[in-house]
């Protein structure tokens, strides 16, 4: 009576699995709450829902409609209805499909975002690993230190690189002091693809560190001990244990860097030269300078499609799986 080796119901050792099991299916949406749903639910979710419908969903829909309209005479949009019939056209899409220049800009944006993602990964990995393996009491502080620059103004962070890469900066002078005696033209670090990439990496780095850290922190240190015990050296332990286990974090970080980097316009605008036109600059140009809104909308829709497809892909790749 006092012992029960088979039943597995030793008091205290068994978890309250039943409570948890019921919560998983029932307690989160118990049916007494169903009664509140009629009024309570709409009272609570109604206002944010309404706000986001008006200021996010409807503008997005307008953009979709705008992409099918011809441009207005003085820029902007032509009226949607003319002479009683809908004034729709595929003109803007045809223009995008017909001109390889735009595809080159898309391709360039993808390449820049890709390089940015890779650089961020290489820089972020040791940082995330160090924080994840620090004593627990320092981790939050070390992480806060990684995130803090991210919370400072985006433009300030880009502007900082204008100073560092500027023609009179110590860095520029040092580089040219090496380059010129070798017979090369003096180089300008600022207003170059290099500057754009540095800016992109700098601005997006925390987005890579966060998911990596979140993943690495959960690793059981015993796994590494076990690997070492089985004869793996430091290099093998990293590539055979740590890195494969961190892949979900890598994918999540890649998405968080790649997607915003794809749409950026201010960094090429500030740090880049004339050839550094990315898709973001093109969109900005269509809306504010050329005022070809239908075409700008088409470009935006394509960018949205790419971004959502990538976000979906990353979510799928890094979906939670059975963990060790």
């Amino acid at each position: 009576m006092r012992w029960k080796p088979r039943g597995g119901s030793m008091p205290g050792t068994s978890s309250p699995a039943e409570g948890a099991g019921v919560s998983a299916s029932g307690a989160r949406h118990p049916s007494w709450q169903a009664r509140d749903r009629g009024t309570g639910r709409w009272l609570v979710s109604g206002p944010p829902l309404a706000y986001l419908l008006v200021f996010f969903a409807i503008p997005a829909l307008i953009m979709v409609v705008a992409s099918f309209t011809p441009p207005g005479e003085y820029g902007g949009l032509a009226p949607l209805f003319e002479d009683g019939k809908a004034n729709l056209t595929l003109e803007a899409y045809e223009r995008l499909a017909g001109d390889p220049i735009y595809w080159e800009v898309f391709a360039k944006s993808v390449v820049y975002a890709g390089i940015t993602t890779l650089c961020c990964l290489v820089l972020a990995y040791p940082l995330a690993m160090l924080v994840a393996r620090s004593p627990r009491k320092y981790r939050d502080l070390l992480m806060l230190l990684v995130i803090l620059p991210f919370w400072s103004n985006f433009l300030i962070r880009v502007y900082a690189w204008m100073i560092i890469l500027g023609p009179q900066s110590a860095l520029s002078r040092a580089v040219n002091a090496v380059v010129e005696p070798l017979g090369f033209e003096p180089v300008s670090l600022l207003f170059s693809s290099f500057a754009v990439l540095v800016g992109l990496v700098y601005v997006h780095l925390p987005f890579m560190v966060l998911p990596l850290y979140a993943n690495l922190e959960k690793h059981d240190p015993a796994l590494l001990d076990a690997a070492q015990d089985l004869g793996a050296n430091a290099w093998q332990r990293f590539w055979r244990v740590t890195f494969p286990l961190s892949l979900p974090g890598v994918w999540a970080g890649a998405a968080l860097v790649f997607i915003p980097a794809l749409g950026i316009f201010a960094i090429p605008d500030i740090l880049g030269g004339t050839e550094d036109t990315l898709i973001g600059n093109l969109i900005k140009q269509q809306f504010l300078e050329t005022r070809d809104w239908p075409f700008g909308s088409v470009l935006s829709i394509v960018l949205t499609a790419i971004a959502l497809a990538l976000a979906g892909l990353a979510a799928w790749v890094s979906r939670p799986r059975r963990t060790a």
């Binding site: 119901s9 068994s14 039943e18 409570g19 099991g21 019921v22 029932g26 307690a27 118990p30 007494w32």
Partner: peptide, 19 residues
């Protein structure tokens, strides 16, 4: 009863958290 036998669900229905 063992986990998942319905005892907690029954209790929650008496309390009114579940119907």
């Amino acid at each position: 009863g063992p986990s998942g036998c319905g005892k907690t669900t029954l209790l929650r229905m008496i309390a009114g958290f579940d119907l």
